[in-house]
């Protein structure tokens, strides 16, 4: 049975791009446009993996990751963001992020990051 992925990004274009990359091998549980929706959908679907943008309206991805990790410490969250700042990565680690992909990305780098996180 394919593993479930929750896509979280305020950009319709990026959600669409990630869906195209992942849907061959994964089941897309749902798509969230902000951190509040992400936490609600995580609790609803209990997905195997969350692909989480950082900069989003209402609640950002780092806060949402911390809340998901508090709810389910065994969850898997990969930050999927345009931000490539070391200090921001440290904040993501502190929030519990398991992986970090910087946009723009290609399919191999996404699949590699997912493999690393799910195998850990």
């Amino acid at each position: 049975m394919a593993k479930q992925v929750l896509l979280v990004d305020d950009s319709e274009f990026m959600r669409n791009l990630l869906r195209e990359i992942l849907e061959e091998e994964f089941e897309i549980a749902d798509e969230a446009e902000n951190g509040v929706e992400a936490v609600e959908m995580y609790k609803q679907y209990d997905p195997d993996l969350v692909m989480m943008d950082i900069v989003m309206p209402i609640r950002d991805g780092i806060e949402a990751t911390a809340e998901i990790k508090e709810h389910d410490p065994s969850s898997h969250v990969i930050m999927c963001t345009s931000i490539g700042q070391e200090e921001k990565m440290k904040k993501a680690v502190k929030a519990g992020a398991d992986g970090y992909i910087t946009k723009p990305f290609q399919k191999p780098s996404v699949m590699d990051a997912i493999s690393d996180v799910l195998a850990a």
Binding site: V55, M56, P57, S82, Q85, E86, E87, K88
Partner: peptide, 24 residues
Amino acid sequence: GNVTASGVLDGWANAIDTSIDIST
């Protein structure tokens, strides 16, 4: 635009070991 603007700011932030938050 988001990726482009972030690319510029990332270089600046990493140069001085700080973080710069970008809006939507």
